[in-house]
Design a protein around this nucleic acid. Sequence first.
DNA 1: GCCAAGCACTATACCGGTTTAGTGTCAATC
DNA 2: GATTGACACTAAACCGGTATAGTGCTTGGC
Lengths: 337, 337
Amino acid sequence: MRRPTIADIAQRAGVTKAAVSFALNDQPGVSPATRARILQIAQEIGWQPNSAARALSDGRAGAFGLVIDRPAGFLGAEPWFIQLMVGIQSELAAAHTALLFTVAEDKQAEIELYRRWWGQRRVDGVLVVDVRLDDARIPVLKELGVPAVAIGPAQSAGGLVTVSTDDGAGARTVVQHFARLGHERIAHVTGMADLWHTRERTGALRDEARAVGIEAVSVPADYTAEGGAQATTRLLRRRTPPTAILYDNDLMAVSGLGAAQRLGVDVPDQLSIAAWEDSVLCRLVHPSLTALTHDVVAYGAHAARSLLDLLSGSSPGDQAEPAPVLTVRESTAAPAA
Amino acid sequence: MRRPTIADIAQRAGVTKAAVSFALNDQPGVSPATRARILQIAQEIGWQPNSAARALSDGRAGAFGLVIDRPAGFLGAEPWFIQLMVGIQSELAAAHTALLFTVAEDKQAEIELYRRWWGQRRVDGVLVVDVRLDDARIPVLKELGVPAVAIGPAQSAGGLVTVSTDDGAGARTVVQHFARLGHERIAHVTGMADLWHTRERTGALRDEARAVGIEAVSVPADYTAEGGAQATTRLLRRRTPPTAILYDNDLMAVSGLGAAQRLGVDVPDQLSIAAWEDSVLCRLVHPSLTALTHDVVAYGAHAARSLLDLLSGSSPGDQAEPAPVLTVRESTAAPAA
DNA sequence: GCCAAGCACTATACCGGTTTAGTGTCAATC
DNA sequence: GATTGACACTAAACCGGTATAGTGCTTGGC
């Protein structure tokens, strides 16, 4: 059966398409009685607006885009993204906006996708994650004029609207936690070195360690389980290994825990471990992991909100999330004497 | 700057919109010279078809829908879905079809979403995951006439096209592996009891255990870390606990491992553990987990392919994936004497 | 030399909405 | 009693594509 259109409603109500459109959109131009009759008919025959027709008419796609381009093997185990998506959707559902989601091979493919989506008017704007130091996506998005919100540090996005977490505060919290427990030599296994997150965290960690008078080193990894395990193994084989390690995500932390256990290093007796980003992963391993907890769902919601605001003409400005809080579990303790 | 339309091309080429449309769509009706000129101009000004206009004209949305309605906390840690999406996207990208992805609160919300997407012509078809025994989505999709492919057992979907894995073979493989190691009392921690997967696996496991003459019990859980840990704890506290456990997903297996370790039960010396669905999670914990490996990316690609075929008018029929193979790692061994 | 056929292209309708300009009716105003 | 204005509505254009009917010109067949 054909899906009903406003022409069907118009015919039944004995008015024109225009009158129906007015009634359905709460526009003036129809009497209360006619409006009620039209709404009644629309309800009865189960009319819903054809998104293509509406998009064509008002020039809006009614959809946002989100692309992720980390390697597929990694993505799967990262709760962060899905949490973020849940948050994004919670805002978009109310705004009757859909989300186009894609996993891209690399940054170049991601840029191509933006060009296509924008060129074909498939999206009204995009959300950008994993902002790099010299990110090729930013100038392209600006050149195209795509409304975009970057999920990352305010200074990162060269003029795009941002929503950011307080990476500095997180780093300081962990350093202080380790220092208070008595650790004097700590390490930090990071994500990709050219991510803004990484730079922010590394800088703050170094400064805070200096301030409280302990040794700290950041070693680069890549957010993957393999990377986390390798970095851990190398750190623990040093002549003077660290007594505590902070990992830039939960996956590397869990993987680092496994690597330490394989080397016969007891956690937390011989090594304390903390994860940046809390998730079910941190809770289910043994020992459970101390982690920086932060409401990623709300983060996603705020990003989506900012993009909606941007499109409605207001300037949302750069938003800051509350600082992450440390959830202490079994994996951190005083270092062995 | 306004995005170019075929009218712009037509003007520059000194022909009508129709001629341009013919040229761009490889339709007869224009001379080779004119066609070349039009393509050249389109290329130059960076024309791309407006998806809304095309959708309105030919009645296709150019997008598929995928909804997931498991609890958000769980979703994040499940690599399976993202792997599936990567596979889906790989097929869709080539077909210039977008994917609308949403996380729904519950089955009812999911059904509402289908009604909206379909009513508004936002999607041309949907992919259905997590098929239940008496699944309320199926009759709705059939009533609406939405082209749909169910990712699950062939008999599950009441007439929808399906793409399925061989759950029976997987169950038999694991039972045989445990039996060969010498286990005589095994357990199976399942996902939601009303999922078709669960029924298939439970039945095959019971039959195969009987065939090889060992004891087997399936206990229901819910795919979550908490559920897996609780089921494990209860099993290990029995008077005669199992010496091997199969978990219906990787997350519960990892969580079960943690629970066993917490009870002081050594894996694999006192307890063997296997996971259904392999992923990075299985590799990164210590001991690493024996798991049923299966190409989820290909699975997703096949499902997307089936839906594309369905829409192009052919009847893809029910597709079966290759049986999963067992990847043996550190977590399974002969039981303690 | 006339008619038919084929070709290259134009004009226009159409998809299903939104929007703008215009029209007829009625009550209020002077 | 004529004028004004508000109101309720209609007619039609428009968004950017696709598809169909039609037109003028060339070519071929007999």
